[in-house]
Simulated assay, not measured.
Amino acid sequence: MKILKLKLANQKSKFVRWKIRKMYKGDLPFKIVGSRTIISFKENYFYNRIPKAANSTVIASLYAKESGVKLKSLDEVQIIKNNYFTYINDLDFQQLKQLQNLYKFTLVRNPVSRITSAYLDKVKNKNAPQRKLILRALNKNENDDITFDEFLFYLENGGIYHNAHWSLQKDLLFFDINKYDFIGKMENISSDLPIILENIYDEPSRIISIMPHARKKNILENPNSFQLKKIHSIYQPDFHVFKYKPS
């Protein structure tokens, strides 16, 4: 009897995972999207994390409100990401049925500043593990530099589907865009995030700002006209869906 119950539970778990994957309609491998969903059934929200769009600040603000603890570093935020929240792949059958009723939100970012930030943090930075994907694609060695133009070449030749930090934001959305209760913008975080927090907690809440990747000004702050044209072409769906105007 015990073995039969275990088999039934395993089949039910497989069905839930299959059902979850069927719900996603985007173009990314599901393993990329699944890790970008944060769920709280206690506070009734679903947060679709977009890399390079104030993830750490949102997580720190949610956690501070719920625990009373103020996170102070990226390392602390990462621990909370890994251990505090529920992810989409963790759901059981009953939780899956509740998913549609949660308050769904995300924050997005202008594709130009997002992709230049991704380049500085995940490509130009030689300690970033993500750059290995690009080195391999460009047939470069571990210590070789990758120029921004080479990065754009990699993106327009399929690399855009390889990692969440530079994928299309629209493809990182687990639900269809019209299912979200609020889609804020990083550029308006000082006004948009308080709205999100008040909608969740029914009272004003503090923003806990975490800026782990803030960098000094450099030449990539203003990509040249050729680079901008390529960014607009590669990320045209994001410009359109999230109503960003080309620079």
Rank of each mutant, 00 (worst) to 15 (best):
I183Q: 06
F85M: 08
N222C: 03
D192R: 01
E43T: 01
K22V: 00
I79N: 10
F30S: 04
Y119N: 01
T147C: 11
F93W: 14
F148P: 02
F174E: 02
I231G: 08
T57S: 13
L193Y: 11
K216I: 02
L62K: 02
I231C: 12
L99T: 02
G68W: 12
Y244S: 09
Q236C: 00
N44M: 10
S61Q: 07
F85I: 07
D145E: 15
N125I: 08
K132L: 13
R131H: 12
I189R: 00
T86I: 15
I219H: 12
D145C: 10
F182L: 15
P129Y: 13
K2I: 03
I3H: 13
I234N: 03
F148D: 05
P29A: 14
I39R: 04
R215Y: 10
Q236Y: 04
P237Q: 12
Y180G: 09
D92M: 11
K126P: 07
L120D: 08
N141Q: 14
K179I: 00
S67T: 15
R17W: 03
L197W: 00
F30C: 03
A64L: 08
D202K: 15
L91M: 08
N89T: 13
T106S: 15
K179Q: 15
P246W: 01
I50H: 08
I38E: 11
Y47M: 08
N141C: 06
P246E: 09
K81H: 06
A54F: 00
Y103Q: 04
N82Y: 08
F151W: 11
K243H: 15
L102Y: 07
I231M: 12
Q95L: 10
E43I: 00
L96N: 07
L120K: 14
L4T: 10
P111A: 07
N82S: 13
P111Y: 09
F182V: 07
K7R: 10
H162A: 13
I88A: 03
A128H: 09
A60Y: 01
K170A: 12
T106W: 04
N139I: 03
E198Y: 04
K245W: 01
N163C: 08
G68K: 05
